[in-house]
Design a protein around this nucleic acid. Sequence first.
DNA 1: CGTTGTGTTGAATTTGTTCAACAGGAGTGG
DNA 2: CCACTCCTGTTGAACAAATTCAACACAACG
Lengths: 235, 235
Amino acid sequence: MKCHHHGNHNGEFELCVSKVPIFNHLNQEEMKEIASLIQSKTFKKGEVIFSANSSINELFIIHTGRVKIYRLSESGREQILRVLEAKEFMGELTLFNESLTQNYAEATEKTEICVIQKLDLQKLIEKKPSIALRILEEFSRRLTNADQLIQQLGSADVETRLASVIIDLSNKQISRTVTLPMSKRDLASLIGTTQETISRKLSTFQEHGWIKQTGQRVITILNMEQLISFTEGKK
Amino acid sequence: MKCHHHGNHNGEFELCVSKVPIFNHLNQEEMKEIASLIQSKTFKKGEVIFSANSSINELFIIHTGRVKIYRLSESGREQILRVLEAKEFMGELTLFNESLTQNYAEATEKTEICVIQKLDLQKLIEKKPSIALRILEEFSRRLTNADQLIQQLGSADVETRLASVIIDLSNKQISRTVTLPMSKRDLASLIGTTQETISRKLSTFQEHGWIKQTGQRVITILNMEQLISFTEGKK
DNA sequence: CGTTGTGTTGAATTTGTTCAACAGGAGTGG
DNA sequence: CCACTCCTGTTGAACAAATTCAACACAACG
């Protein structure tokens, strides 16, 4: 694991701790304690943070940047499960589950990560059970997202899935002009299709005047109703 | 919601409480307390336990029977997300997440369920935070299962997904003769395909001598290696 | 300024769906 | 126990959707 360790500049870690949902409800003193347990690492674009078939003994909290969580099928195909951004955490599955992960985590851009040891976190949770509740909330959210993706992959065609992602991004970014948080190749992997198909479908959307593509990762929604109608029963 | 309420026969509820992973680590007295908070309901095959667009204020613990959790797409297609059996719980997503569920839950056979009110459970968790840890463990397991299904739906063809389900069932039932825990129609919905395709693929598997179908829901694996080879890179 | 990664387009092929007809079992009431 | 119906599962054939392979264009980055 190539990475760069920083010295323990407390200010930096407090920033990391005080902002994230799983810790930000604690008081100053408690956060200071947590900050003292944290280590910082930086990953370059493309660097792998953890791999399948390893047991993870840390919780990783993203400070800046983005990380894609994915699996590789034996045939070599990459399926992205989710993309994590600032304030989200990963490595959690082996925390409450003694098993090897089957996931890969890779920085898709320069990413700073706060690392806390599994044992330290377990002690923290014992002292402050409210942390467990925050993690439960986040797990709920992820499970709901996973369920959503399962439904889409299992029951919707590519056009619908693509329209759905664009709408979700538009809602999240609170704008009709959407910036894709990943390459189109990765977008394809996330919604279970290929680069080529994404490219073709976006061209079709644009031909119909429903969207406008500007540059490689910017899409402006011109006809939201049409996109929504994809997600609500066909044509 | 059609259902049948029973009187509070304590013995019955203790049985329900003392067996389930989220409570079975507690002592006798604590379990008795929980038993006093529980109500029992019985659902017939096909009865809907909860529907999308409702807020669920109970945790449901399955005592006997089976429940399918699914979503309906606007086009009317049913996507099964998971099938729950004895000792598993549902309704959890709105416990830690103030939102309407998008899921449906339906008994696929006669099912007895223990119901505990959301508020009661929250009080219990405050008193015994270890319950939250058990729920976290279960959430971990579900998230891992969901991730597995996402990978399969997104990256594997139907033959692979089907082989994979059969292998999983064989492992779970510790036998080469597998009894499907659901109709083939539901199996199709779970792995994101149609009844017809399942039927065809199983016939193909049988023609090749890899499996033998006995009755409607019993499959004997004759060539495990071949099935496994599907899941590990193609042909 | 070239190299590499990312995205686009075309054409052939594959995979799976859909619709339709039919077969078989399970449960119900007579 | 039989007859009936409903539900589940099977099979065929036409069709639709998306993948694959291949060639090329464009952008970003050193």
